[in-house]
Simulated scan of single mutants.
Amino acid sequence: MKGPLFYSKILLFGEYGIIKDSKGLSIPYNFYNGALKTEDNPSEEAVNSNKSLKAYADYLAKMDQDLVVFDIKSLQQDVKGGMYFDSSIPQGYGVGSSGALVAAIYDKYASDKITVLENLTREKLLTLKSIFAEMESFFHGKSSGLDPLNSYLSLPILINSKENIEATGIPTQSSDGQGAVFLLDSGITGETAPMVSIFMENMKNDGFRKMLKNQFIKHTDACVEDFLKGDVKSLFKNTKQLSKVVFNNFKPMIPAQFHELWKKGIDTNDYYLKLCGSGGGGYMLGFTQDIKKAEQALKDYKLEVVYNF
């Protein structure tokens, strides 16, 4: 058995801000994917994945049936038969490994599911998002439901506010463009839950809340608008500001060995770094107007280009 593929995602803008109603923009990233599978000679990874699916099935069995009903019997039977999630999506890297799994489970086992083929009204998107938030909170403690939504629909998603999300189009990539968005591999895994609790702790501080509203959210919203309009000049101006704000106020989320590199990008304008997901490790996102320059400046690191301007 092999189920359909579900892709990883990249939240281009909006990490942490969307908790406080900033705009956000999330895009599918087809380089990584995952699917539900069973096979006769499972690897050690498959066996471990199967074990955690067993715990997950028990969790889903207790979920509020007014929200979503699963065919738990089939799910438990398949898990007993050795089903696992075969995934190339790195865990703890901020590209939505649990999101793809949640999307795959919903797709296969939810009764009366909302499908990708129907007219996706705002109401349906919000319903899906709240189902996915509940399903994914098994992995993170608290989830916005956006990662699975992105993975399930395989469409870019524009977050205008908590109650206002829509599938959107993004400007076509220019294949020979010098400008690029890239992933920078930190080489270490990040954990979402501890990073989110540092953020929530900081939110008790009046000065931090002001900074979030007047700087972080302001530049995040501007970046989303610039990106969707294709206004590259303004986008880089706002990304630089965003990179500075993160450097000055989100230090714990940036692995210590990258502090210097982060600042160097701002000082030289060769590239600007920002968090990809909750930070603390995994990938960082980079924006550059000249990918050759950025590659030269970051030659000791692994870069993956995800979008060209």
Rank of each mutant, 00 (worst) to 15 (best):
T189N: 14
G190V: 07
E191P: 08
E191M: 11
E191I: 10
E191G: 08
E191T: 12
T192L: 04
T192G: 04
T192D: 07
A193W: 11
A193E: 14
A193M: 10
P194N: 12
P194E: 11
P194V: 10
M195Y: 09
M195F: 07
M195C: 12
M195H: 09
V196L: 14
V196R: 06
V196F: 07
V196N: 07
S197V: 11
I198Y: 14
F199N: 08
F199W: 08
F199M: 07
F199V: 04
M200I: 13
M200E: 15
N202M: 10
N202F: 06
M203H: 04
M203C: 10
K204N: 14
K204L: 05
N205S: 06
N205Y: 01
D206F: 00
D206K: 01
G207M: 01
G207R: 01
G207H: 04
G207T: 03
G207C: 03
G207W: 01
F208A: 01
F208M: 00
F208Y: 09
F208K: 01
F208Q: 01
R209T: 03
R209E: 07
R209N: 05
R209W: 01
R209L: 06
R209Y: 03
K210C: 02
K210P: 00
K210E: 02
M211E: 02
M211H: 00
M211I: 01
L212P: 06
L212V: 04
K213S: 12
K213V: 09
N214M: 05
N214C: 02
N214S: 11
Q215P: 02
Q215G: 12
Q215H: 13
Q215N: 13
F216R: 02
F216A: 07
F216H: 10
F216L: 13
F216P: 05
I217P: 10
K218C: 09
K218R: 13
K218H: 13
H219C: 09
H219L: 05
H219V: 08
H219D: 14
D221V: 03
D221P: 05
D221A: 10
D221M: 04
